[in-house]
């Protein structure tokens, strides 16, 4: 077991338009990519629970050629709405850092 933040090369998040957030998890190599992209701790249900969003809104994309696992879901607060604390969604990735990966 290890925290995602310790084994991923780089993680970033950003708005993809005002209604979506997208998180890119860059992995060091093919093995690490398989470990991270295949982890049940990052399955759509786990991500939905961590962010308090609906599971069927969570989209995941695997890019093995560049070792990137991508997760997108509708923002919890629409960009610029009253409850929005992160306009560019630049810090949305932070809760993922402490997710334990097998």
């Amino acid at each position: 077991m290890a925290e995602l933040g310790a084994i991923a090369k780089y993680i970033r998040s950003k708005s993809a338009g005002p209604f979506w957030v997208t998180i890119d998890i860059f992995c060091h190599d093919a093995d690490s990519f398989e470990r991270i992209a295949g982890s049940p701790a990052l399955a759509p249900r786990a991500v939905a629970e961590l962010y308090g969003v609906s599971e069927n809104g969570v989209r995941q994309y695997r890019l093995p050629s560049i070792h990137v696992f991508k997760i997108s879901f509708p923002r919890t607060a629409v960009q610029g709405s009253l409850g929005d604390v992160d306009s560019h969604a630049g810090q949305y990735f932070v809760p993922l850092l402490s997710v334990e990966i097998d």
């Binding site: 950003k14 708005s15 993809a16 338009g17 979506w20 997208t22 890119d24 860059f26 989209r59 994309y61 890019l63 050629s65 560049i66 990137v68 991508k70 997108s72």
Partner: peptide, 16 residues
């Protein structure tokens, strides 16, 4: 090839 292919990830919910 890495920087060019990775750019499709940026601010796109679907990279393909």
């Amino acid at each position: 090839p890495y920087t060019v292919s990775a750019h499709l990830l940026y601010e796109n919910s679907d990279p393909f």
